[in-house]
């Protein structure tokens, strides 16, 4: 009876929390709302939600600090609600560990799709399979030992860096990965400002795995932010 997914909504706009509470409840979620980061963190500690939706600009404790505190103790998916003009803060929040974002104003369907994707990802769990030597996700099949990659049933040959990039994407399907996060994961912290490296490798990888590299369906560009990987069904 009580296995409804729990969602915590943190926003200082009471009208929006009212709408989200009703909209999400009607879709079978258990929803609680808080008006700022501080109150949100209290609810989070007491209630252990499965997912958090949070605004960025709030009194008392803003969305950034809230994400940081939650991330320090939990891997619960976090979706950010941001307005245009908050790009910098949004990227910062994603770097801190937020999983996704929705730009205001948004339709409830878009938010729900993101909620479902984030929950799916969380349930899949970060370490699935015994020794984690096989990565299977959507159209992709990767053997980490032999470094063999199969896309839609046919084998593709990747350079070591392209292989690393693809496995990083496969480990975080659906999640928005900022330029900084990807650069740090592939080349280490000294290269986090070198976006052009990333563009080149993403371009090459697209040529090898996409059916049409000009309109990619797996590696999707999030303008000014980074990339999102959709493994397909």
């Amino acid at each position: 009876m009580n296995d409804k997914p729990r969602i915590l909504v943190v926003d200082d706009e009471p009208q929006l929390t009212r709408v989200l509470r009703t909209g999400l409840t009607s879709r079978g979620f258990d929803v609680r709302a808080a008006a700022d980061g501080l109150a949100g963190f209290e609810v989070f500690s007491d209630w252990q939600p499965d997912l958090i939706i949070t605004d960025l600009a709030m009194p008392n404790m803003d969305g950034l600090e809230f994400c940081r505190r939650v991330r320090a103790i939990s891997q619960v998916p976090i979706i950010i609600l941001s307005a245009k003009g908050e790009e910098k803060t949004k990227v910062e929040a994603l770097d801190i560990g937020a999983d996704d974002f929705v730009t205001k104003p948004f339709g409830i369907d878009e938010l729900l799709a993101r909620v479902r994707a984030s929950l799916r990802r969380a349930h899949a769990g970060p370490t699935k399979g015994a020794a984690q030597t096989l990565l299977e996700c959507g159209d992709f099949h990767v053997d980490l030992d032999s470094r063999a990659v199969t896309v839609r049933g046919s084998e593709v040959h990747l350079t070591p860096k392209e292989f690393d990039l693809l496995t990083h994407f496969l480990k975080h399907p659906g999640k928005v990965l900022t330029h900084r996060t990807l650069l740090a994961a592939l080349w280490g912290g000294n290269y986090v400002e070198q976006n052009e490296y990333l563009r080149v490798f993403v371009g090459n990888l697209r040529k090898k795995i996409e059916t049409d590299a000009a309109s990619p369906r797996y590696i999707l560009t999030e303008p000014w932010i980074g990339y999102r990987f959709d493994p397909g069904e």
Partner: peptide, 18 residues
């Protein structure tokens, strides 16, 4: 101004789509 216009719009849009 953008913030003040977009905040109510966000609530309206979310309600109407629901």
């Amino acid at each position: 101004v953008t913030h003040d216009l977009r905040t109510p719009l966000t609530s309206i849009k979310a309600s109407i789509t629901t």
